[in-house]
Amino acid sequence: MKMGLASKIWIYFLLIATSAFVFFPVLYAFMISFMTGPEIIQGKFFPESISFENYSKVFSRLPLLSYLLNSFIVSVSVMLGQLVVCSLAAYAFVFFKFKGRDFIFFLFISTMMIPWEATMIPNVFTIRKLDWFNTYQGLTLPFFALAFGTFLLRQHFLTIPKELHEASQIAGLSRFRFFWRVVLPISKTSLVTLGAYGFLTTWNMYLWPLLITTNQSVRTVQIGLKQLQSQEIATEWGVVMAGVIVVIIPTLLLLFLGQKQLQKGLSQGALK
């Protein structure tokens, strides 16, 4: 479309002003993470010098490295678990005809109306009975099945031509080989979307790790932040912000790299 110069300038102005506004808190935290105590109290925006002292302090105060590793293991596990469990289910819904399919589909939909927080009390008891407190399986397994993920992949699987399926059956390809060799490679974009979504949401998870981790063995970075904040609150904001920056870098990077993909994929999954 052709746009006049005046309206172009006006739109650029709005873009710059509003996006700066949105990004400001992150930038501010970044600046604070390089400041010394007195600088913060003086209310400066730019640090006088770039020193990584706060960063080395935060790594020595908290087992942050081990928390980061835990978060990474948990997020990757949930991501892979969701991809496997959801793609298997989506495949069954699209390429199998069987009795009760509609009913099972309805059951999947109904899980979306049950807020996770409404089930957390018995879930904590279940984890306790299984003796899964402070374990990776306790942190990850409950999230492997995901109705939203199943729908997202089902949407993509539905676009695969039925003829391809018939041809593969004539060629004598087994169900599983068709799934593994044909369906999954075709659906790579949706799998990437779901993977990124799974990683992001798990990395950012707060309440469940708070309930399930009682010591530092598998504790995730988000709970580490809570710990840091309650320890350091009164004095060393620079150290706290250094912790914040370390924690948000992996997901921000993931988002920057996959923003286009995520936006396309999520809005497709949203609108059947």
Binding site: N204, Y206, V247, Q259
Partner: peptide, 21 residues
């Protein structure tokens, strides 16, 4: 677009600490 979507990449815990400050 990246700037506007950035808050999706920042966890609730991290955002809360920033706002607390």
């Amino acid at each position: 677009r990246t700037m506007y979507s950035s808050t999706m990449g920042i966890s609730v815990a991290a955002s809360s600490v920033i706002w607390l400050f």
